[in-house]
């Protein structure tokens, strides 16, 4: 797999180690997260039992604004939005409907949205935030780790902030100092401190 800068799976069970390397690679590929995750260290020990994944994100995607996927053409009577990327059309329409009312938002075809002139300035609409992929990215990363971890490990602790994330799971109650004792050393191996 993957163009991750650092990808290590550790386990006392050599068969399990190979299997989890494949599982992690498959899951990250399926969820399209390979480009997002920079470094990942996984430790699984079924005897304790414990699953720990720690890693760094490559970069957080920035918020998507109207100018990223549409051309704004202000006219005398109306403002025409020429949509080039349809993926963000639905959230855009939702915002416009809430703000200006459905009767003022016209959509003559799939790639055109027309607003009455004067309701909003050109600069303002271009800078309008339509979606924030980082919100769903957090969920995606945590979902991927839940998906990779053994299913019986239902007790878990998760963290994702400022480009660092970890996910600890076990079948039994997790000790209070698990992060300092187990997770922090994994970050040290990757050359960063938690």
């Amino acid at each position: 797999m993957p163009p991750l800068n650092y990808f290590v799976v550790e386990s006392p069970d050599p068969v399990g180690k190979d299997a989890y390397e494949r599982i992690a690679a498959d899951v990250l590929q399926d969820l399209d997260l390979i480009k997002v995750i920079d470094r990942l260290h996984i430790y699984v020990d079924p005897k304790i039992p414990l699953f720990v994944a720690a890693g760094l994100l490559r970069h957080m995607p920035r918020a998507i604004r109207v100018s990223d996927f549409a051309n704004v053409n202000p006219g005398e009577k109306e403002i025409v939005l020429d949509i080039s990327e349809e993926a963000y059309l639905a959230p855009l329409l939702r915002i416009l409907w809430a703000r200006f009312g459905k009767e003022n938002v016209d959509q003559p075809d799939r790639f055109t949205v027309v607003l009455p002139a004067g309701v909003i300035g050109q600069k303002e609409i271009e800078q309008l935030v339509v979606a924030d992929p980082s919100e769903t990215l957090y969920k995606d990363v945590i979902y991927a780790l839940q998906y990779i971890a053994p299913e019986g490990f239902k007790v878990r602790r998760q963290y994702i902030r400022e480009g660092k994330f970890y996910y600890v799971a076990s079948e039994d109650t997790l000790p209070g100092d698990i992060v300092e004792r187990v997770v922090a050393p994994l970050f040290e191996k990757m050359g960063v401190t938690l």
């Binding site: 069970d13 068969v15 399990g16 299997a19 989890y20 599982i23 699984v44 079924p46 005897k47 053994p150 019986g152």
Partner: peptide, 17 residues
């Protein structure tokens, strides 16, 4: 399961488990 002729158990990765 007992109503079948045979059961295939699709188990996981770890010997211990």
């Amino acid at each position: 399961i007992n109503e079948h002729d045979l059961a295939v158990y699709a188990l996981g990765n770890f010997e211990e488990c």
